[in-house]
């Protein structure tokens, strides 16, 4: 966590451009008329999100985004699309549903009103960072208690191990649910 202040001091260029990229790809994914184009732009969205997570020093999240989004989601969506028929579209974008857009804008405005009270990104005064009982305790005690250097993995597998067991069972149950939905008895 060395050198956090200089990064905070000049977040502007890289952070702003990444955010513009992510918002643009998200909008195009939502509005694209052709489903294949939406899937492709969604892949591009994951590229931007992985870079953003990396910049915010969350490499585990970035690695998950990279592996799941680039490797798995795109492929599974394409396989599903291969089972459907194609409709030729005249226009590139969907027509915006004004009531839905209004509701989404209202929600966005409500969330944006709370942004003034959120601490700055990377601030050392943020409660999530400065809290001595949670974040700082894990950062200082993890290696002594588990012998593992990666705090994220230690929290996932040891301190919150029962939650992770639940998540693993959920993944397993998702596979079984897919079998049931598709009326199959075997995977392969």
């Amino acid at each position: 966590m060395t050198g956090l202040e200089p990064v905070v001091a000049q977040v502007t260029a890289i952070e702003a451009s990444l955010l513009v990229f992510v918002v643009l790809t998200a909008l195009v994914t939502a509005l694209a008329r052709d489903v294949l184009a939406a899937v492709i732009v969604f892949g591009a969205y994951s590229l931007g999100m992985a870079a953003l997570y990396t910049f915010y020093r969350a490499p585990d999240v970035a690695l998950t985004e990279a592996a799941i989004s680039a490797g798995v989601t795109t492929v599974l969506l394409l396989l599903t699309l291969a089972k459907t028929t194609r409709i030729d579209h005249e226009t590139v974008f969907e027509e915006v549903n004004l009531p839905a857009a209004g509701a989404a804008g209202f929600l966005f405005a409500g969330l944006a009103l709370t942004m003034g009270d959120v601490p700055a990104v990377g601030s050392r005064e943020a409660p999530v960072w400065s809290n001595p009982d949670v974040t700082q305790w894990y950062l200082t005690e993890t290696y002594a208690q588990t012998g593992v250097e990666n705090t994220v993995m230690a929290v996932l597998a040891a301190f919150r191990g029962f939650d992770t067991f639940g998540e693993a069972v959920v993944v397993f149950a998702a596979g079984i649910a897919a079998l049931i939905v598709l009326h199959r008895e075997v995977f392969a």
Binding site: A13, F21, L24, V41, A44
Partner: peptide
């Protein structure tokens, strides 16, 4: 940041 700007330009071709 410059490469991200290039990526935004490339997004035009993807869309």
């Amino acid at each position: 940041a410059g490469f991200v700007v290039l990526a935004i330009g490339m997004l035009y071709r993807a869309v």
